[in-house]
């Protein structure tokens, strides 16, 4: 994404304007420094402390927390679960939401407004209660999903209570809950596609698919990267839903990293903020690395495409 924006052509301007430029970024920089950079730096500092629960005793222990983290199977298990959730749900959300957005972007589609609202609704539904509803929907003995399975002669599935299926079930509910957000990202992005282009193409006799691949897609490419990244970040922070639906269980099968960090920091029988901070820093570094490599690959592929 850094790449896509970096190449935006800026109109050459004189000195008078450049002062305004700094005035415009200043508020963001100041707030960013206070509420993102400072906490990040603090987290790195915390991660080198032995800091238990109520914070009077803080002793500097260097890299001890990191040593422990590297050999903590639950942490790496949680990273594995989180990565799995990202790898599975992000592409599904991006594709399904794009399809939805394209259909709902058509002003001539009957009931479009109503439908847009309907698909946005799960986003605002209170997570604590969503957990209860989904418990009924996915109930192993009386839920409608299992009733449907029974109709086609399949055995009942304990969707949330078995460590084999709990993660898949959480992922499905996660996609359901947050699809509306990705949809409105896409709707916003679609507004940069000039309508006249469509009209011209339609007159030329281009079908829906050709219009999509030849007009919409190329114009959306920069947004694919931005929205993809936003969706990855949101998915990394999957937290409330897991906490209310499974609490990370059964037997760690849905323990995502944010939940594990939270447990270490605040919910353990003996909370350990220093260790939790170390886990947070490690996880952050890990993700930045993964995303960095992905962006590099995207750039390479696109660079090649441009050469050819």
């Amino acid at each position: 994404m850094a790449a896509t924006i970096a190449h935006a052509p800026g109109p050459p301007r004189g000195r008078r304007v450049s002062r305004w430029v700094y005035v415009f970024v200043l508020p963001t920089l100041v707030l960013f420094g206070m509420y993102t950079i400072w906490p990040s730096v603090s987290s790195i500092f915390y991660s080198m402390l032995e800091w238990r629960g109520l914070g009077v005793d803080r002793t500097f222990t260097g890299l001890a927390n990191y040593e422990r983290a590297f050999s903590d199977p639950l942490f790496w298990g949680s990273v594995r679960v989180t990565v799995l959730v990202i790898v599975v749900t992000v592409p599904i959300r991006l594709a399904a939401a794009l399809l939805l957005a394209i259909m709902l972007n058509n002003p001539r589609l009957p009931l479009a407004r109503l439908l847009r609202t309907a698909f946005f609704i799960p986003v605002v539904a209170t997570t604590a209660i969503v957990g209860i509803v989904m418990g009924f929907v996915l109930d192993p003995s009386s839920g409608p999903v299992n009733a449907a399975l029974e109709l086609v002669g399949m055995p009942a599935v304990d969707f949330l209570g078995s460590s084999d299926t709990a993660l898949s079930s959480v992922m499905v509910v996660h996609v359901w809950k947050w699809l509306g957000i990705t949809m409105i990202y896409w709707l916003a992005a679609l507004q940069t596609v000039p309508v006249d282009l469509y009209e011209a193409a339609a007159i030329d006799g281009a079908g829906a698919w050709r219009r999509f691949t030849h007009i919409t897609m190329p114009l959306l490419v920069p947004f694919v990267v931005i929205i993809g990244m936003l969706t990855v970040v949101e998915t990394m922070q999957i937290f409330d839903l897991v906490l209310t639906m499974t609490g990370g269980g059964p037997f760690f099968s849905t323990l995502v990293t944010e939940v594990y960090i939270y447990q270490q920091a605040f919910a353990a029988s003996n909370p350990n903020l220093g260790y939790a901070a170390a886990l947070g820093v490690l996880f952050g570094v890990f993700t930045v690395l993964v995303v960095g490599v992905m962006l590099l690959l995207v750039r390479l592929v696109r660079g090649k495409g441009a050469d050819a």
Partner: peptide
Amino acid sequence: AEMEEIRPNLGEIVQGCVGGDI
């Protein structure tokens, strides 16, 4: 106060035994 929590904890072990993970 000095002891770190051991996990899986006792409740999680029960959970694992009942669910077939242990």
